[in-house]
């Protein structure tokens, strides 16, 4: 079943078309990758799906329900969550507080609850803290909950961002270059984590990735964008053989990644 469907999504800035008439379908419980040279419109597409940008044309459907043009805070509770290419944690909040903010839409304490410390407030605080600790353990940050996010090592920051994204109980998780800047060991750990998210939690994954080993290693479907246009789509093997894809990369002088992956 299709979880997320984009139909003819177009987004431009001034005269520059960042995403052009993009069609994309993400199957439930799949791992789908979007690849493409820098400036291909991948992150812009993420920003359209999460409501940060409003596409000028086209539809974005989550479980058949149109969500384009809705604000991010209304889309999140419907089951979409994301991480960022350049980590955007709440730097001056602790790790556990970052996850608690991620739970925001699932908590309901209002001003009177908070001021009067109603039973609901206590129940929610206790439960949410317990769950936040579970999530910390799940992403491998057990015992680091009281550290400020900005003091965590780089790899931990990436994992914390995933933990925060999981806190809203998403059905679709958008990962923007989750292994960027990681060493091979950390990359392998992250790949394993992504597969566990899908396997154990049943979360559908849509990721932007430059590391072809990651793309080819874990994704079932790959979509290739160039200058905002979809130039290829299919299984990793199909895409790898597609001439247009190779040209797009070679044309930009960035063929090394794909070539290396093809040889491997």
């Amino acid at each position: 079943m299709t979880l997320l469907a984009a139909k003819g999504v177009t987004k431009s800035f001034g005269g520059l078309v960042a995403v052009s008439k993009l069609d994309l379908a993400v199957e439930e419980r799949s791992i789908t990758s979007i690849i493409g040279p820098n400036g291909a419109g991948k992150t812009t597409f993420f920003n359209c799906v999460t409501g940060y940008f409003k596409p000028e044309e086209g539809e974005i459907l989550l479980q058949g329900r149109p969500i384009q043009g809705m604000s991010p805070d209304r889309i999140t509770p419907l089951g979409i969550s994301r991480t960022y290419q350049n980590i955007r944690l709440f730097a001056n909040m602790t790790a556990i507080e970052n996850i608690l903010v991620g739970q925001h839409t699932r908590l309901h304490a209002n001003v009177p609850d908070v001021l009067l410390h109603t039973p609901r407030f206590f129940r929610e605080e206790t439960e949410s803290k317990a769950e936040a600790n579970r999530l910390l353990r799940y992403v491998g940050l057990e015992g680091h909950g009281d550290l400020l996010a900005r003091n965590l090592p780089y790899g931990d920051q990436r994992r914390l961002e995933i933990g925060r994204a999981l806190a809203s109980h998403p059905s679709l998780l958008l990962l923007d270059e989750p292994t960027a800047g990681m060493n091979p060991r950390e990359t392998a750990e992250t790949m394993a984590l992504i597969q566990r998210l899908r396997g154990e939690m049943g979360i559908t994954i849509l990721l932007i990735e430059h590391d072809m080993r990651v793309v080819m290693g874990i994704s079932e479907r790959v979509t290739v964008l160039d200058h905002g246009v979809k130039i290829s789509e299919g299984t990793p093997e199909e895409v790898q053989r597609d001439r247009r894809v190779i040209e797009a990369y070679l044309g930009r002088g960035a063929a090394s990644g794909l070539a290396a992956a093809a040889e491997a």
Partner: peptide
């Protein structure tokens, strides 16, 4: 922006 993405109105 991120706060809003986390569902904060």
């Amino acid at each position: 922006d991120v706060a809003q993405m986390m569902g904060v109105n």
